[in-house]
Structure formats: C-alpha cells, structure tokens
Simulated scan of single mutants.
Amino acid sequence: MITLNVNGTPHTLDIDPSTPLLYALRNDLKLHGAKFGCGLGQCGACTVIVDGEATFSCLVPVSAIGARPVRTLEGLGSAAHPGALQNAFIKHQAAQCGYCIAGMVMRAQALLDKNPHPSEQELRDHMEPNLCRCGTHMRILAAVRDVAGIAQPHIETKAQR
C-alpha cells in the first residue's frame, strides 16, 4: 500500500511501488491535469509540484514520494473558480492545443510559490524545461509575468519602425 498526499488529501493506493506518479494520479486518483507527453522527462506535460518543486511525474515512482505533498492542476482551482495563474493563462490565451498547459501552469506556480516576483531571467530559466509544441511560449510567459507583476517587454512592430 502506498499513501500519497495529493492536493491536501491523503490517498491510500494498492499499487506497485514502482508505478510512476503520473499513472497513479491519472489512473487511480482520476486527476487528469498532468499529461503523458514523452515519458522521459523531456517535455514537461506531466509536471506537478512535489514538496514545492516542479517535478516530472512520469519519472518519479510513487515509492519515492513518501510523505511529501503533491500538488496538481486540480489543486489550484476549478473551471468554475480558476486560480490566479489559471485566470492569467485564460486572459493571455496561452493555450492552443492545451496539451502542455497543465505542466506549464504547475511549473510557473512552483516558481511563484518560492518567488512571487521573479526577474525576467529567473522566469525564463525556470520555464525552460517545459515545451509547448504549438509555440505559445510568448503568451505563456506573458501570463506568468502578469501574475508576477513583471513588466511585459515592448515588442516593436514594423509599423512602429
């Protein structure tokens, strides 16, 4: 038996201790925010927060979690009452296909939990491990900047030159 504390609630699961956290979240707890992307910790679609750290849940066996708290997208808000970061992603239309967005939100939330007002470079460095195949990185960064109170960079258009 494995006990996981997910979004503030303890869950006792009868699963193999080597089961990746991602599978326990999706298959056993029916929390579908984190997605299976690559299974190699290279894309970030499966990112959750474990004990305050952005973590690729596809790589971590449930036996390695122990008593550390796990936070998923579902722990930030709901469709009816989204959290601040989720609202910013909506406002900035940061999702295109939406596959990477839960991982992006969770990686950003881990940063903002530790440092509510990161520098532009800290933001970019922290978000780098997560990939968006649709190319909405600039809108994702804009959403995080909005919540963090970081000024949006001015982008000069051809018409302004």
Rank of each mutant, 00 (worst) to 15 (best):
Q121H: 14
V48F: 09
E120N: 01
S18W: 04
H81V: 14
K114L: 15
T12W: 04
G103H: 13
H92A: 12
H11T: 09
Y99T: 05
D14P: 00
T55V: 04
A88E: 02
F89V: 02
T19E: 11
A79S: 15
H92F: 09
P69S: 15
S78Q: 07
T47W: 01
I90P: 13
A88N: 01
Q42C: 12
Y99Q: 08
L31R: 15
P10V: 14
V60P: 05
G75F: 10
A102W: 01
G52L: 09
Q93K: 04
F89L: 09
C46G: 05
C100M: 08
T12M: 05
K114W: 02
C43G: 08
D51Y: 08
Q86G: 03
G8M: 07
C46F: 02
L85P: 05
Q86T: 08
P82H: 05
A84N: 04
I15K: 00
P10S: 09
T55G: 09
A102M: 10
Y99S: 15
G52R: 11
A54Y: 13
A64G: 15
R71N: 03
P20R: 04
A84K: 09
S18P: 02
L25D: 00
M104V: 07
M104Q: 12
D28N: 15
H32Q: 10
L31V: 09
Q121V: 13
G33D: 08
M106S: 13
A108Q: 00
Q96V: 03
Y23I: 06
G52E: 11
K35M: 06
L29H: 04
G41S: 15
H92P: 14
L21F: 09
V62T: 02
G39T: 14
V48E: 03
A110E: 01
P10T: 15
I15W: 02
A102F: 06
A45I: 13
T72R: 00
G66Q: 07
L112F: 06
G77K: 01
C43P: 10
G98I: 09
H32P: 01
A67T: 06
L40S: 12
K91N: 08
G44I: 10
R71K: 13
G52C: 10
V60Y: 07
C97Y: 03
A67Y: 03
L29I: 01
R71W: 08
H92D: 12
L112G: 00
A80H: 15
G77I: 14
H81M: 11
N7L: 06
S63Y: 07
G37Y: 05
K35Y: 00
R71S: 07
K91I: 14
A64D: 13
T12P: 01
P17M: 11
S57A: 06
G103T: 10
Q86Y: 03
L29K: 10
K114N: 10
G39F: 15
S57I: 04
I15R: 03
V70E: 11
K114V: 12
Q96W: 01
C38I: 14
T9S: 15
Q86S: 12
A34N: 08
I49L: 08
Q86D: 08
I65T: 07
C100W: 01
A34F: 09
S63N: 05
N7G: 03
A84L: 14
E53I: 12
A67R: 08
G44H: 12
E74H: 07
R68K: 14
D28P: 05
A79R: 13
C46K: 12
A84E: 07
R71V: 06
V50R: 04
K91S: 10
V48L: 00
H81I: 12
T55L: 01
T72C: 01
C100K: 14
G83P: 03
R107W: 06
A94D: 00
